[in-house]
Design a protein around this nucleic acid. Structure first.
Lengths: 159, 159
DNA sequence: CGTGAAATTGTAGTGGT
DNA sequence: ACCACTACAATTTCACG
């Protein structure tokens, strides 16, 4: 229930460190320090500060959905019956591990989901289950043909 | 130019390791081993194998776009004049760091982009520049109101 | 922010089931 | 093929200057 109000600002060194970590999140502090011209402990202090400040939210592994057997990807627009609160939509779609991304949006639709499925049948099943939620009036979906860009994190901060 | 055809399959242990790494990509091999009941070197070999097999594509830091000053997020549908090859679209939109996600899609539009911008003016500028590409007939965009789910990686593999 | 020392971890090699 | 163990190198983590 904590909204971040504070805008963290990074100096040139922080930006370099973050960029290197985006590229490889397991780089050692010594390695980072050597590349940006700092000692390992100085780098560690900066990373800790960025973590506490909320700019860095964590570290993860990046996976290839295709290699894991997720062959179908699609965007699903959600049209709700009434003014459904975002929390309700969130709670409903969060139950599906197939939903990897969800946002309420402006415009005709109320929300946009990004879904991964093992195959077309699986995709259809998830779609049916989501469409069966009481607050969902209808859905409209498009299938991903080729993924062109999949950048892991936010772009470099605006100057 | 390398398409992966091979489907990597993970056993119960691999799945646990991957799940732990999704949660924290900097966990040590010793930590992982202790949690799944293996030695550190056994875990390391499994991670190496998953990396070589293409299931694990890398490690990154996860950032909070808001904390970095990216306050506006939106989806942009791209409508192209003729049958534009995916590579052309890719090359054009990859020049914008603001485009964090892009795919060609089925349906009315030819591609869907996800864009982060510092503010509304910035968003509009990016939209104008993309719309000015010779192969772009028009764009249609929706703004993200609240991000509901942002899962870092692919879901656990289908059984 | 750097340095130094102790604790922890990464890594490659060896051998056992 | 998979795992444990060992030993050495590298890294983390903390003190203090």
């Amino acid at each position: 229930m904590r909204d971040i109000l504070h805008r963290v600002d990074l100096d040139r060194l922080d930006e370099q460190i973050v960029a290197l970590l985006v590229d490889d999140g397991r780089r050692s502090y010594a390695d980072l320090g050597q590349r940006v011209g700092l000692s390992a402990s100085a780098v560690q202090r900066r990373v800790d500060r960025l973590r506490r400040g909320g700019a860095i939210t964590g570290f993860t592994v990046t996976l290839d959905p295709g290699a894991l057997g997720w062959t179908v990807e699609g965007y699903v627009e959600l049209f709700c019956r009434m003014r459904t609160p975002p929390a309700t939509i969130r709670a409903a779609v969060a139950r599906f591990p197939e939903v990897v991304d969800a946002s309420t949006v402006s415009g005709e639709a109320d929300a946009v989901l990004r879904i991964l499925a093992a195959d077309m049948r699986h995709f259809e099943q998830v779609l049916e289950q989501i469409g069966a939620e009481p607050f969902v009036a209808r859905t409209r979906s498009v299938l991903v043909l080729s993924p062109l860009i999949r950048r892991p994190a936010a772009p470099q901060p605006p100057t």
